[in-house]
């Protein structure tokens, strides 16, 4: 209980996939980073916000049966690595897609979902998940 500012601080990134672009090498990082791991000090002060499209490709996935408490109602759920079109790879759930349609290489798009809630009286935490594109 009692999570608040830690969640609130990341709203832009989790709601809208706001990433950071290195002004030096133009690589895009998500989650956002204050220093580019390629350019190091050359990137200081040059990391700027860019909004990602939410489009990407599944690079790996798992069906999670043994889950933390927050995800019990969704068991089994699919967790995937998604290569976003702008470059970064992120970890996110895949929803609304039958298991037999989830494969490495499938195209996905981001959707806005509830991630957890801090008990019945705490804040609701929203963020991105992904769904396989309708072919």
């Amino acid at each position: 209980m009692g999570e608040l500012s830690r969640i609130w601080r990341e709203s832009d990134h989790r709601y809208r996939l706001v990433a950071h672009e290195c002004g030096n090498c133009k690589r895009i990082f998500f989650p956002p980073r204050d220093v580019c791991p390629i350019c190091h000090r050359d990137s200081i002060g040059k990391m700027r916000e860019v909004e990602l499209s939410g489009k990407g490709t599944i690079s790996s996935f798992t069906v999670v049966h043994d889950s933390p408490r927050a995800f019990k109602r969704q068991r089994p759920y699919v967790l995937a690595l998604i290569d976003l079109d702008e470059g970064p790879t992120i970890t996110a759930q895949i929803v609304d897609t039958p298991l037999d349609q989830i494969e490495i290489g499938k195209r996905v798009h981001s959707v806005f979902r509830r991630i957890h809630e801090d008990g019945p009286g705490g804040i609701i935490q929203y963020g991105y998940k992904f769904a396989v594109d309708l072919s």
Binding site: V95, F112, R113, R114, I115, I124
Partner: peptide, 15 residues
């Protein structure tokens, strides 16, 4: 779905 509510639906419609 269990991770959908009025806010998530409103956001998707708005988008």
């Amino acid at each position: 779905a269990p991770d959908e509510d009025t806010a998530t639906i409103a956001v998707e419609a708005a988008r």
